[in-house]
Every structure is written in structure tokens, then in C-alpha cells.
Simulated assay, not measured.
Amino acid sequence: MNAVFGVIFHFIGGFASGSFYVPYKKVKGWSWESMWILGGLFSWIIVPPIAAMLTIPNFAEIIKSTDNATLGYTFLFGLLWGIGGLTYGLGVRYLGVSLGSSIILGLSMVFGSLMPSIYYFFNKAEGKHGIDYFFTTQSGLCILLGLLVCVLGVYLCGKAGVSKEKHLSTLSSESKSDYNFGLGIVVAIVSGILSACFNFGIESGKPMADVANILWKSANPNQGEFLYQNNVTYIVILWGGFTTNFLWCLYLLIKNKTFSDYTKSDVPKGKNLLLCALAGTTWYLQFFFYGMGESRLGNGASSWILHMAFIILISNAWGVVLKEWKGVDRPTYRSIIAGIVTIIISICIVGFAKTLEN
């Protein structure tokens, strides 16, 4: 049952992440940096400690008692992930929700799932799999197969994106206003690689999660692993993410003189603020449920692959719902649908792989 609940939690987290940008698309009269930093305040600063307080009442003491090296590395990976998250927003802006998310998260899935296993191959740790695990066990081979199938799905989505660019003349002015495949693909590659640092941050901050887990298990014996143990780690990772995004958005607000966005009289300020708060809170929920899924499946490749695959799946589904592919020819539309179906198959393969461990 742990595997089943783990997959369900990762689906909910993936749905949250794949959906978070939708409210931003409804913001009127504000620049990208104006809405991004407001949403980020909820994602990185406001919601995480509230979630930790509700689930780990002594989270502040755990952070204070953690050694500087653990905090430093966790914060550093948060900084790097913050650049990935920052460019994620730009990638979605230039490529659209479905294509941008597919490329960015596909790269993040590959790097985030394989890089830690390479590290643990040379630095053995209890409960952690080295890269050899993928080639010497049934479960590992199945996970690797699921990863390769998901990469194929991402390729099909990317192929659809290239084809879409050739048919921009048939799209509405709103659909093609920000679309820029050349710039978008560069941003997406940078974002995809650096977004994997979130998984590295979870690994670095594991001692904090372990303390929360031990305290909970001592108070709740024989009830399995603590579902919310990672909520304390997220706080430090997201501090790093906030630092990167805040500095960049502040630069843009000054450079583009867009501070005035917040005082414009002809924009729905209250509605915009609520939409940004909704987007930011929704983005945080992906971490909240990822932690729950990870507590059931373990913080290995299967958790990261499932999480990324669900995000790609939901993002592409939103792309279809939002008619980002409206006006393209049938082969292009078939390609994006084939990509979505392929990713669904990869999710099933990775979910099945986890059952082989038992």
C-alpha cells in the first residue's frame, strides 16, 4: 500500500506544480516580474513556515540545532534551484505551459534522478542507491526503462513544439505574442538542469528531516514513517530559492521601471494579488505532497521521476485545455497527444518498479 499511496501523493503534487502557472495567465496589466515576485513570497516565505508549524511544531528548534555545513549546502542548492525556478517561469512564458514544462521538467527528471545515485555510488550511505542499482536489480532496470520511456514522451512533446513554431501564422495573436522557441529552448535547458538541484537540496537537508522523523516516531510508535518530515527541510531550500528570485525580480523592477505596476489605477489590483497568492501557494503544494510521497516511496530515483512525470503530464493537459495547440495541423496535435500518452506509460512503469523491491 505504501507504493500506491506514494504514487497518489506524487500525482497530487504533480497536479499542483503542473497547474500553478495557470492563475498567472489571468493576471492583467502587470509585468512578469511584478507578478512573479508576489507569487514567490507565498511560495518561499509565507506558506512554508505555516505548513511546517502545522505539521512539525518544533521545526524552528530543529533548524537552529542543525550544523552549519548541512544548512549551508541545503541553502546553496536552494539558490541554484532558485535560478532553475526563475528560468522555469521564463521558459513557460516563451514556450507555453505544455512545451516549456515538458522540456524543463524532462531534463530536471533525468539529472535529478541520476546525479544523486552517481554521488552515492562513490559515497555509500544506508538506504541510498548507487548508479549500479539501475543495472543490477529488477527494480532498478524497470525504473531506468520508465525513465527512458518518459524521455521519449518529452521528445514527442518537443517535436510538437518545433512543429507548432512552423504554424504560428495560424495561431491567435494572444497565443503567439510571447512564443519564442529559440530563446525559450536555451532558457529551458538552463532551467531543467538547475531545477534538479531541489532534489539535491532534499538530500543535503536530510539530517533535519531525520530528526523530525525520529521525534514523531518516538511519539507515535509503530505507525511507519512521518509523512511531513521534509517540511522542515523545505524552509531552508526555499530561503535559497527566494534569494535568487528576489534579487532578479528586484533588478527587473528597477531596470524596467515596473514598480508602478502596483499603483496602476486601471488594473484589478485585488484580483491580481489573489491570483498571485493562489499561484504561489499552489506551487508550494507540490513540495508538500512530494514530501508525503517521498515518505512512502523513499527519496530515490522513483520518487523524483514520478513527481516530474506527473508535472509534465498535467502541464501538457493544461496546454490542451488552454488551447495552446489550437490552430496547429493534425500531425502536430497527434505528436503532443502521443507525448502525453507515453509519459502516462512511463508513470505506470516506474510505479510498478517500486513493487519489485518488496
Score class of each variant (00 low, 15 high):
I189E: 13
A209T: 09
A219W: 01
I185C: 11
L215M: 09
K217D: 05
S195L: 10
P221R: 02
S218W: 10
L194P: 02
Y228V: 01
F200G: 00
E174V: 11
L194G: 04
V187A: 11
I189H: 10
K217P: 03
E203R: 03
P207L: 13
N213S: 09
V186S: 14
L183A: 02
G182L: 14
I189D: 13
G201N: 14
Y228C: 04
S175G: 00
A219G: 06
G182C: 09
G224Q: 11
N199T: 12
E174C: 00
Q223H: 08
V211S: 00
D178A: 15
A188D: 03
L227Q: 01
G182P: 10
G192M: 00
N222L: 10
L227G: 01
P207R: 14
M208Y: 06
G224A: 12
I202F: 10
A196S: 15
A188N: 04
F198E: 08
P221C: 11
A188R: 02
A219T: 03
K217L: 05
S218N: 15
S218V: 01
V211W: 12
L227T: 01
C197I: 05
A219H: 02
A219V: 02
Q223R: 04
G192S: 05
I189T: 10
E225V: 06
G201Q: 15
I214N: 01
N180Y: 03
D210P: 00
G182M: 12
K206I: 14
Y228E: 00
N199L: 05
G184A: 13
F200R: 09
F198K: 00
A188L: 04
S175A: 07
